[in-house]
Every structure is written in structure tokens, then in C-alpha cells.
Lab assay of single mutants.
Amino acid sequence: TGEEYIAVGDSTAQQVGDLTFKKGEILLVIEKKPDGWWIAKDAKGNEGLVPRTYLEPYS
């Protein structure tokens, strides 16, 4: 379980453990880390770190 967020920009994984996503994708945020990198899952079930500045709450 988690909260749904929509990507407001494209982000390409810079290192192992990062999640690549495109603008408009809905991501499920699993954990919000205080350093600004959140753990999220995409629609295909891929999981990784995403920069919170690229996400907005999805409603």
C-alpha cells in the first residue's frame, strides 16, 4: 500500500536502485525518506528511488 503520485517530469535512473519514469506516469510511493528521495513502484511493478521534486499528489 502507499500513496499515488503523478510524475511532473521525466527522470532517468542515475545509479542502481533508481527508478526511471516518464512525465504523466502514476507512481505508488511506498516510503518517504527525509533526504528527498522516495521509494516508489510503477505500474509494471518496478521499484526504486525517485526524486520527490518530480512528483505531485494524484487525485
Rank of each mutant, 00 (worst) to 15 (best):
T1W: 13
T1N: 12
T1A: 13
G2A: 11
G2D: 07
G2S: 09
G2Q: 09
E3F: 09
E3Y: 09
E3Q: 12
E3W: 14
E4V: 14
E4K: 14
E4G: 05
E4M: 15
E4F: 15
Y5S: 00
Y5F: 08
Y5W: 13
I6S: 03
I6F: 05
I6G: 01
A7Y: 09
A7D: 00
A7I: 03
A7L: 05
A7F: 09
V8F: 04
V8K: 10
V8I: 14
V8E: 02
V8N: 09
G9Y: 15
D10N: 09
D10S: 09
D10G: 06
D10E: 07
D10F: 05
D10M: 04
S11W: 15
S11A: 10
S11V: 15
S11M: 14
S11F: 15
T12N: 13
T12F: 13
T12H: 12
T12I: 13
T12W: 12
A13T: 10
A13H: 10
A13P: 10
A13C: 12
A13V: 08
A13K: 08
A13W: 13
A13M: 08
Q14S: 12
Q14E: 12
Q14D: 10
Q14K: 12
Q14G: 11
Q14V: 12
Q15W: 11
Q15I: 10
Q15D: 10
Q15T: 11
V16N: 10
V16F: 13
V16E: 12
V16C: 11
D18T: 15
D18V: 15
D18F: 15
L19I: 05
L19G: 00
L19F: 06
L19V: 03
T20R: 09
T20W: 08
T20Q: 11
T20V: 12
T20K: 10
T20S: 13
F21P: 00
K22N: 07
K22C: 09
K22I: 07
K22R: 11
K22H: 08
K22Q: 07
K23I: 08
K23G: 03
K23W: 05
K23T: 08
K23D: 03
G24L: 03
G24M: 03
G24D: 04
G24P: 01
E25G: 03
E25K: 02
E25R: 02
E25C: 07
E25T: 07
I26A: 03
I26Y: 04
L27P: 00
L27E: 00
L28S: 05
L28G: 02
L28Q: 07
L28M: 10
V29A: 02
V29S: 00
V29Y: 01
V29H: 00
I30C: 05
I30N: 02
I30T: 07
I30E: 02
E31D: 10
E31C: 13
K32F: 06
K32G: 02
K33I: 06
K33C: 14
K33N: 11
K33E: 03
K33W: 07
P34Y: 09
P34G: 10
D35K: 03
D35Y: 05
D35V: 03
D35Q: 04
G36M: 05
G36V: 03
G36S: 04
W37D: 05
W37R: 10
W38S: 01
W38F: 06
W38T: 01
W38G: 01
W38Q: 00
W38M: 04
W38E: 00
I39W: 13
I39G: 02
A40L: 05
A40N: 00
A40S: 03
A40C: 15
A40I: 07
K41E: 03
K41A: 06
K41D: 01
K41W: 06
K41G: 02
K41R: 15
D42V: 02
D42H: 02
A43P: 07
A43S: 14
K44I: 08
K44D: 11
K44L: 12
K44G: 08
K44S: 11
G45Y: 02
G45D: 04
G45R: 02
G45N: 05
G45I: 01
G45F: 03
G45A: 03
N46F: 07
N46K: 07
N46G: 05
G48M: 03
G48R: 02
L49D: 03
L49Y: 12
L49I: 09
L49W: 10
L49S: 08
V50I: 07
V50M: 03
V50S: 01
V50P: 02
P51Q: 14
P51E: 13
R52L: 09
R52Q: 13
R52K: 13
R52G: 14
R52D: 10
R52N: 13
T53A: 14
T53E: 15
Y54V: 11
Y54R: 09
Y54S: 13
L55E: 01
L55Y: 01
L55D: 01
E56Y: 08
E56T: 10
P57N: 05
P57A: 07
P57E: 07
P57G: 04
P57V: 08
Y58F: 11
Y58S: 06
Y58P: 05
Y58I: 10
S59D: 12
S59L: 12
S59Y: 12
S59I: 13
S59E: 10
S59G: 11
